[in-house]
């Protein structure tokens, strides 16, 4: 039986890994990293991820602990080690595998960083800079358009509404984890019909429904239903984000 420690927080990157673990039916122990207290910068955690970010895992199953950091590396490691039936991945070095890897890399160097910057300037930055908000929301929408075009093309080619190989895989899951937070970045998904259908299908997966509730209740969508809820949620999250940033700035002055 698997023996995996997951270090995480309730963010898109964190939820992506808990969802992957749930999809694979693996046993794991959740360690909530309190970003408000900068736990991710403590020495013991830097031993697990030298970059001081969540998510990270330590797999103790084989007896020799293996640390893995960076979301895509973790997803690839978990599938290589435990998804021997290829339920959410593809055989190593197959054409589908490389296509899946392209989308994983695209997400983590595109949607993740760009939507993350939109979050920063739209939600957290103390001064509102119109140029920066527009730049990153627009870039996020450009990437959603690429996703939408791909899904439509795949459906048109009889491959279903999935990014690679005619089935749901970690390529879909990693993109999903960010698109599922679109409203937080102030990005409308209205114009992306294929993405919206795809999103709703993935949201209904039992493993995903469990995974997004790790390490705590996923309250963003509910909070966003009312103006007061949105403000309250935004205030709470701005505090810890800005605090972490300030500490980084001082360290590297």
């Amino acid at each position: 039986m698997a023996d995996i420690d997951l270090y995480t927080a309730g963010t898109p990157n964190g939820q992506k890994i808990s969802c992957t673990l749930e999809e694979l039916g693996l046993k794991y122990t959740v360690h909530k990293i309190d970003i408000a207290k900068n736990v991710q910068k403590e020495d013991w955690f830097l031993e697990i991820n030298p970059n001081g970010r969540i998510p990270a895992i330590v797999d103790k199953t084989s007896g020799t602990p293996q640390r893995v950091f960076e979301g895509a590396a973790i997803q690839l490691y978990l599938c290589a080690t435990y998804d021997t039936q290829h339920t959410i991945s593809f055989p190593y070095a197959s054409a589908e595998y490389w296509e899946m890897l392209s989308w994983l890399t695209w997400m983590q160097s595109g949607i993740g960083p760009m939507q993350g910057q939109a979050n920063h300037f739209y939600r957290y930055a103390p001064t509102k800079i119109a140029y920066a908000i527009t730049r990153y929301q627009t870039e996020t929408k450009r990437l959603y358009q690429v996703l939408n075009d791909r899904l439509e093309a795949q459906r048109g080619a009889g491959q279903g509404l999935w990014l690679v190989g005619g089935k749901y895989s970690i390529a879909d899951l990693c993109c999903f984890s960010w698109v599922n937070w679109a409203e937080w970045a102030g990005v409308e998904t209205q114009g992306f019909a294929a993405v919206r259908t795809w999103l709703e299908v993935i949201q209904r997966r039992p493993a995903v429904r469990r995974g997004v509730e790790v390490p705590e209740r996923f309250a963003m969508k509910e909070a966003m239903r009312t103006r007061e809820g949105e403000e309250e949620y935004a205030k709470h999250h701005s505090n810890w984000v800005m605090q972490g940033m300030k500490e980084d700035e001082e360290k590297h002055k």
């Binding site: 293996q66 893995v68 979301g71 983590q108 160097s109 993740g112 960083p113």
Partner: peptide
């Protein structure tokens, strides 16, 4: 072994952590 996965971690850190921010 461990080095195989460790190298992948650093590559993914480069593509998600170095490139995008240097680029901005």
């Amino acid at each position: 072994g461990s080095e195989k996965w460790e190298a992948k971690c650093w590559l993914h850190f480069q593509t998600s952590g170095q490139g995008p921010y240097f680029g901005q």
